[in-house]
Amino acid sequence: MALRNYVPVDVENLPETFEYDLDGRTYLLTFKYNDEGDFFTVSFSLLDETLLVRDEKLVLDTPLFKGNPNPRLPATSLIPMDESGQATKCGIDEFMVSVFLFEDDLDPEDAAMPGPIDIDDDEEVD
């Protein structure tokens, strides 16, 4: 089960454009696939179709719009991630299988996995 919300993309029907709510604003997202390079891109627009970002490549573990100061972009980071940590790229075999475009709004302490539990054989259990 995923710890974060993710953007649901239908990779079988690309290009795909749909509305997505983030940070109290609705955006139009357009996803495309480049089969020669085995990568996905996303474009972000406002509902009036004002283009904010065109065809940004999804790169594993790299936030979208990094370094883009446009205040109309969402403040919440969107990051292609594999929460299991096993994927090495964000291609056709990984995206929407083990790699998802997550809203990275989870407190890092909440995302930490618990460590091993110490069991003391000397303690009695009621």
Rank of each mutant, 00 (worst) to 15 (best):
E103V: 00
L106E: 06
L51S: 13
T26Q: 07
L106R: 15
L101W: 01
Y6F: 14
T76N: 07
D10M: 13
Y6H: 08
P63I: 00
A75V: 14
I92P: 07
V9T: 06
T26C: 12
F40A: 01
D105V: 05
T26Y: 05
P63C: 03
F95C: 03
G37K: 02
Y27H: 08
S43P: 10
P74M: 09
D35K: 01
F31V: 07
N13Q: 06
D10S: 14
D55T: 03
Y20W: 07
I79R: 00
P15G: 12
S84I: 11
P74T: 10
D23A: 04
Y20D: 05
R25A: 14
F65W: 01
R72P: 12
T17F: 13
F100T: 01
F100I: 04
L51G: 14
A87P: 02
F31A: 03
M81R: 01
A87S: 14
I79T: 03
Y20F: 12
P15F: 12
L64C: 04
P15E: 13
G85T: 15
S45D: 10
V99R: 15
L47E: 15
E16L: 08
R72S: 12
R4E: 11
A75C: 12
D104H: 08
G24P: 04
N5L: 10
F31N: 01
G37T: 11
F18P: 02
I92M: 12
D110V: 05
G37V: 13
D82E: 04
D38S: 12
I117A: 14
L14E: 10
P63K: 00
M113A: 15
V59C: 06
D38I: 15
K57A: 13
M113Y: 10
L52S: 04
F39W: 07
D21R: 09
D55W: 02
D105T: 04
E12K: 12
R72A: 06
G67N: 13
C90I: 03
R25K: 10
I117L: 15
S43A: 13
T30A: 04
D93H: 06
S98Y: 01
E94M: 03
F44E: 05
I117W: 11
A75T: 09
N70W: 01
V99H: 10
L3M: 09
P8A: 09
P69G: 04
S98P: 05
T26D: 15
M96K: 07
D48V: 03
D107C: 02
Y27G: 11
G115H: 11
N34G: 12
V53L: 07
L22N: 03
N68G: 09
E19V: 09
L52C: 11
K57G: 13
F95W: 07
D104I: 13
L60K: 04
V97R: 05
T62D: 12
P63D: 11
D38N: 14
N70C: 05
D55I: 00
I79Y: 00
L22K: 02
L46E: 08
T88K: 10
K32L: 06
D10E: 14
V11F: 00
E49D: 14
F18C: 07
M81K: 00
I92G: 07
